[in-house]
Deep mutational scan, measured.
Amino acid sequence: TDVTFHVNGRNLHLKGADEELLRRIEELIRRGADIEELEKAVKEWEK
Protein backbone atom coordinates (compact mmCIF):
# COMPACT_ATOMS: atom_id res chain seq x y z
CA THR A 1 0.00 0.00 0.00
CA ASP A 2 1.26 3.48 -0.85
CA VAL A 3 -0.01 6.22 1.45
CA THR A 4 0.96 9.75 2.41
CA PHE A 5 0.33 11.21 5.84
CA HIS A 6 0.29 14.98 6.27
CA VAL A 7 1.64 15.85 9.72
CA ASN A 8 2.28 19.38 10.93
CA GLY A 9 2.71 20.69 7.41
CA ARG A 10 5.07 17.90 6.37
CA ASN A 11 4.47 14.77 4.35
CA LEU A 12 5.38 11.22 5.28
CA HIS A 13 5.10 9.02 2.18
CA LEU A 14 5.06 5.27 2.71
CA LYS A 15 5.60 2.82 -0.14
CA GLY A 16 4.72 -0.80 0.39
CA ALA A 17 3.32 -0.22 3.87
CA ASP A 18 1.51 -3.15 5.44
CA GLU A 19 -1.45 -3.02 7.83
CA GLU A 20 0.83 -3.30 10.88
CA LEU A 21 2.82 -0.21 9.92
CA LEU A 22 -0.31 1.77 9.06
CA ARG A 23 -1.85 0.95 12.45
CA ARG A 24 1.39 1.94 14.20
CA ILE A 25 1.56 5.29 12.36
CA GLU A 26 -2.11 6.02 13.08
CA GLU A 27 -1.59 5.28 16.78
CA LEU A 28 1.45 7.56 16.94
CA ILE A 29 -0.49 10.37 15.23
CA ARG A 30 -3.34 9.93 17.73
CA ARG A 31 -0.80 10.33 20.53
CA GLY A 32 0.49 13.55 18.98
CA ALA A 33 3.78 12.22 17.63
CA ASP A 34 5.93 14.59 15.60
CA ILE A 35 7.25 13.79 12.12
CA GLU A 36 10.62 12.63 13.50
CA GLU A 37 8.92 9.98 15.65
CA LEU A 38 6.92 8.78 12.65
CA GLU A 39 10.03 8.60 10.45
CA LYS A 40 11.80 6.60 13.17
CA ALA A 41 8.92 4.11 13.31
CA VAL A 42 9.10 3.69 9.53
CA LYS A 43 12.87 3.10 9.62
CA GLU A 44 12.42 0.45 12.33
CA TRP A 45 9.73 -1.24 10.22
CA GLU A 46 11.99 -1.23 7.13
CA LYS A 47 14.69 -3.29 8.91
Rank of each mutant, 00 (worst) to 15 (best):
T1E: 08
T1K: 15
D2Y: 06
D2V: 08
V3W: 05
V3C: 09
V3D: 02
V3M: 08
T4K: 04
T4N: 05
F5N: 02
F5A: 01
F5M: 04
H6N: 11
H6M: 10
H6T: 14
H6L: 11
H6K: 08
V7E: 02
N8Y: 03
N8L: 03
N8C: 06
G9Y: 02
G9D: 09
G9C: 06
R10M: 15
N11L: 15
N11D: 15
N11Y: 15
N11F: 15
L12S: 00
L12M: 04
H13C: 11
H13G: 01
H13F: 08
L14Q: 00
L14C: 01
K15M: 08
K15C: 03
K15L: 06
G16R: 07
G16H: 08
G16P: 01
G16V: 06
A17V: 09
A17M: 03
A17E: 02
D18E: 08
D18A: 10
E19V: 14
E19R: 12
E19S: 11
E19M: 13
E20I: 11
E20Q: 13
E20V: 11
L21T: 09
L21R: 01
L21G: 01
L22I: 15
L22E: 01
L22H: 03
R24Y: 14
R24M: 13
R24W: 15
R24P: 00
I25Q: 00
I25K: 00
I25C: 05
I25E: 00
I25T: 02
E26Y: 10
E27I: 08
E27N: 11
L28W: 06
L28V: 01
L28E: 04
L28I: 03
L28Y: 07
I29S: 02
I29E: 00
I29A: 04
I29Q: 02
R30C: 08
R30K: 10
R30F: 11
R30Q: 12
R30P: 01
R30W: 11
R31G: 15
G32I: 01
A33N: 06
A33H: 10
A33R: 06
A33P: 01
I35S: 02
I35C: 01
E36C: 05
E36H: 09
E36T: 07
E37C: 08
L38T: 01
L38D: 00
E39V: 13
K40Y: 13
K40V: 13
K40N: 14
A41Y: 15
A41E: 14
A41W: 08
A41D: 04
A41S: 08
V42F: 03
V42E: 01
V42W: 03
K43I: 09
K43V: 10
K43F: 11
K43P: 02
E44M: 09
E44I: 12
W45L: 04
W45R: 04
E46Q: 11
K47L: 14
K47P: 12
K47H: 12
